[in-house]
Amino acid sequence: MRAVIVAEPGGPEVLEVGQAPCPEPREDEVLVRTVASGVNRADILQRRGHYPPPRGTSETLGLEASGVVEAVGSAVQRWRPGDEVVALLAGGGYAEYFVAPEGQLVPPPHGVDLVTAGGLLEVAATVVSNMDVAGLTAGETLLVHGGAGGIGTFAIQYGKAMGCTVATTAGSEHKLEHCRRHGADIAIDYHTDWVDALKQATDGHGADVLLDIMGAKYLEANVSALARGGRLVVIGLQGGVKGTLNLGMLLAKSGSVHATSLRFRPAAEKAQICRMVAETVWPLIEEGRIRTSPETRIPFDEARRAHELLDGGENVGKIVLVHP
């Protein structure tokens, strides 16, 4: 089968489309012919050699994909050949075929085509699972860093659907306007003193929950931005892995810091998260309360261009590789 090959760690230029063995489903797995593959920042980290897949899983890039069931393992009960599915993967999405455990597949939302759906599940699962960890509730203030990206765009709308006040940061007026169009109540340029701007906009309250993609670079500022009892959830490390944490400030606020990775969770947890997405998020999309992100569709053979676009930092919304 055709797959995107990473011969050695490096920039987008190391990506090549070549041949790889077609995976065979184990008894509890499903083989899917790929229609679209979501492109995520985790893929860039893996391409650079900084985010290896869990032991025993595919070395091929790709944490989410959509497609049509080709074959099923002997113990699979839910799926049949010909079913349209969306998958949450530990790897393997940048290929003509992929395999996934039965519980990590869900049908696409009604009214959403398979290409758009190929960039939905990892984003939705990331946001929903982490808001569950943080215990976000109606009436609270949620701050989302990177609001113009795929995760940010979804998180803004999910927070609004939950009845929260949503603040976000982004790096240009174009991106800030994108955030406002998708429901952000407070949109702040991160080149400014965004902590002070957040405090002013919330009458000194700050963020009850903060969803962070930056890591070390923003750690101290994030803690400063928390309200009393606030919860910081770190899901990305674009700003580095080692930072300084003011424990005195965190203690004074009765705050907490969580760091999670969806990719390394056990299969049973991932299956539970996928069920939660299908039961709680898909209806919000079908009702129009959450809109799918603006997307850039790029042919599968041009995976290198997709990574160049995401590396460049100017993209708004989601990038999806479309298979022939």
Rank of each mutant, 00 (worst) to 15 (best):
Ala216Asp: 07
Val223Gly: 03
Met214Tyr: 15
Val209Lys: 02
Lys199Leu: 03
Ala252Tyr: 09
Phe154Asp: 04
Tyr218Val: 13
Lys160Cys: 09
Lys270Ala: 09
Gly229Phe: 02
Arg180Ile: 14
Gly229Glu: 00
Ile235Arg: 05
Tyr190Glu: 03
Thr192Asp: 11
Thr165Phe: 12
Gly149Glu: 01
Ile156Asp: 00
Lys253Ser: 04
Lys175Arg: 11
Thr260Met: 10
Leu251Glu: 10
Ile188Val: 05
Arg265Cys: 00
Gly240Ser: 09
Met249Pro: 11
Ala201Asn: 09
Ala268His: 12
Gly159Ser: 11
Thr202Leu: 10
Glu173Val: 15
Val144Ser: 02
Ile186Met: 14
Cys179His: 02
Gly146Tyr: 07
Glu220Arg: 09
Gly243Tyr: 02
Ala225Gln: 05
Ala227Glu: 07
Trp194Tyr: 15
Tyr218Cys: 13
Gly150Glu: 02
Gly146Asn: 08
Leu198Pro: 01
Arg231Gln: 08
Thr165Cys: 14
Val223Asp: 00
Asp189Val: 06
Asp189Met: 08
Phe154Lys: 04
Val241Gln: 14
Ala170Cys: 12
Gly152Arg: 10
Val257Arg: 04
Gly152Leu: 03
Lys175Ser: 12
Ala187Arg: 04
Gln200Phe: 07
Gln157His: 13
His205Trp: 09
Asp189Pro: 02
Gly204Cys: 08
Cys179Glu: 07
Val195Trp: 06
Asn222Leu: 07
Ala148Cys: 14
Gly248Val: 08
His178Leu: 12
Gly183Ala: 06
Ile186Ser: 12
Gly215Asp: 07
Leu251Gln: 13
Val233Gln: 03
Ser224Leu: 12
Trp194Lys: 10
Tyr158Asn: 00
Pro266Asn: 13
Gly183Gln: 08
Leu251Val: 15
Ala259Ser: 07
Lys242Ile: 15
Ala271Leu: 02
Ala187Pro: 02
Leu250Ser: 05
Val241Asn: 13
Thr169Gly: 03
Arg228Phe: 14
His191Arg: 10
His191Glu: 02
Lys175Asp: 11
Glu269Leu: 12
Ala170Phe: 03
Asp185Cys: 03
His191Lys: 13
Gly206Ala: 04
Ala184Lys: 01
Ala161Pro: 04
Gly171Lys: 05
Ser261Arg: 07
Phe154Val: 10
Glu173Arg: 15
Ala221Leu: 09
Arg181Lys: 15
Glu220Cys: 09
Arg265Asn: 03
Ile213Gln: 11
Ala252Asp: 06
Leu245Glu: 01
Thr260Ser: 13
Arg263Met: 06
Ala216Val: 09
Tyr190Thr: 10
Ala225Phe: 07
Met162Ile: 05
His205Gly: 04
Leu237Val: 11
Thr192Ile: 12
Tyr218Pro: 14
Leu219Phe: 04
Val234Thr: 10
Val195Cys: 08
Val209Gln: 06
Asn222Pro: 01
Tyr190Val: 08
Ala167Thr: 04
Leu176Met: 00
Ala221Cys: 09
Arg181Asp: 12
Glu177Pro: 07
Thr169Pro: 00
Ala216Leu: 12
Arg231Asn: 05
Ala271Phe: 00
Ile151Phe: 01
Gly146Asp: 06
Gly204Thr: 04
Gly171Arg: 08
Leu219His: 01
Thr244Leu: 15
His182Val: 11
Leu251Cys: 14
Glu269Cys: 13
Ala221Met: 08
Tyr218Glu: 15
Val241Met: 15
Gly147Ser: 10
Phe154Ile: 12
His258Gln: 11
Ala227Asp: 05
Gln200His: 12
